[in-house]
């Protein structure tokens, strides 16, 4: 039990350090990126007005003080007021978050629901036409740039066949193409890994034993293989969920999807520091939390790795 606690403790400390490093990098990059005040005011604003706004935003204080204030506020979940939207950054991001969650969760669900059976089938029917076709598609999904997958979907499905809208958020038909685009990489990776994990297990002695005692092939796969192949699949599935956050930036831009990825890109162009800090920090926090959760699940599933 001590070993287990120690394992989780180390992971937790690492996660906290990672969150701190991420927020520091965000602070440094955003402060390097120039003065936002001229963007806020008309070009003929008097100098006194510029100074007043800088003071309001705390930009006139020493950089060390700004950093300390920033860390304290971050801990309380306060990222300041959006320069562009003129309301608290957290409120702005919260408004865009549901769209991103809707897209991200749909993409993730699509990826897992499709990829695990495909990978399993590919492994069981190894070297058949089905296996080659599935793995060929997986290779394309893993290597092709997300933005071009999106463009191809728009070109073929929306413009060519006229089946689905080209962008924006609305009913389920608006969701299909962005979700497929965003999920493509995860789907491909999970399918490939599921295939190799299942193949690995199928070579094990206990599978030969199960077959030798006359167990039906279906039961061999269902009872002995999937359970033992689950560990690596759980790991990559969690990791892929994290990479969806990065892919969302591109996908949301291609499909004009009103989520936090597109918000982050636009806020960078607007030099809207508070919103950028908030989106990046939230994304990193989600990513780190997911990784921590995977480690914990892993620790419970596989006793061998606990002592570390």
């Amino acid at each position: 039990m001590r070993g287990l606690l120690g394992f989780f403790g180390t992971r937790l400390v690492r996660a906290v350090v990672a969150v701190w490093l991420v927020s520091t990098v965000v602070f440094v990059v955003m402060r390097l990126s120039g003065d936002p005040v001229p963007l806020l005011l008309p070009p003929d604003a008097p100098h006194s007005e510029i100074l007043r706004v800088r003071k309001d935003l705390g930009l006139d204080r020493p950089i060390g003080v700004q950093y300390a204030v920033f860390l304290g506020n971050t801990l309380r979940g306060d990222f300041g007021r959006s320069i562009h939207f003129r309301e608290p950054a957290v409120t702005v991001v919260r408004g865009y978050l549901p769209a991103s969650l809707e897209l991200g969760l749909t993409a993730f669900a699509l990826a897992v629901v499709a990829a695990v059976p495909i990978g399993l089938l590919s492994a069981v029917r190894r070297n058949t036409a089905l296996d080659h076709a599935a793995m060929g598609f997986a290779l394309i999904g893993q290597s092709a740039p997300t933005f071009f997958i999106g463009i191809l979907f728009i070109l073929i499905v929306s413009l060519g066949l006229g089946l689905l809208p080209t962008g924006g958020r609305g009913d389920w038909r608006h969701l299909v193409l962005p979700a497929l685009t965003l999920g493509a990489f995860a789907m491909a990776s999970i399918a490939r890994l599921t295939r190799s994990a299942v193949l690995e297990v199928l070579r094990a002695d206990y599978i030969r034993t199960a077959r030798a005692k006359g167990l039906a092939e279906r039961l061999v796969v269902a009872k002995h293989t999937l359970k033992n192949a689950a560990l690596p699949i759980v790991t990559i599935t969690g990791l892929q969920f994290g990479t969806l956050l990065g892919g969302a930036v591109v996908t949301e831009t291609v499909f004009a999807w009103p989520g936090i990825g597109r918000l982050a890109v636009q806020s960078i162009y607007n030099r809207d520091y508070p919103v950028v800090q908030c989106t990046v920090f939230l994304s990193a926090l989600m990513f780190i939390a997911i990784n921590l959760a995977i480690d914990v699940v892993y620790g419970f599933l596989d006793p061998r790795i606990r002592p570390r």
Binding site: A18, V25, V29, V249, A264, V280, F287, N291
Partner: peptide, 16 residues
Amino acid sequence: AQLAFPFILLAIGIIA
């Protein structure tokens, strides 16, 4: 920490 970060955002920030 770098792996814990959607790098594309950082890249966009630095280039901006």
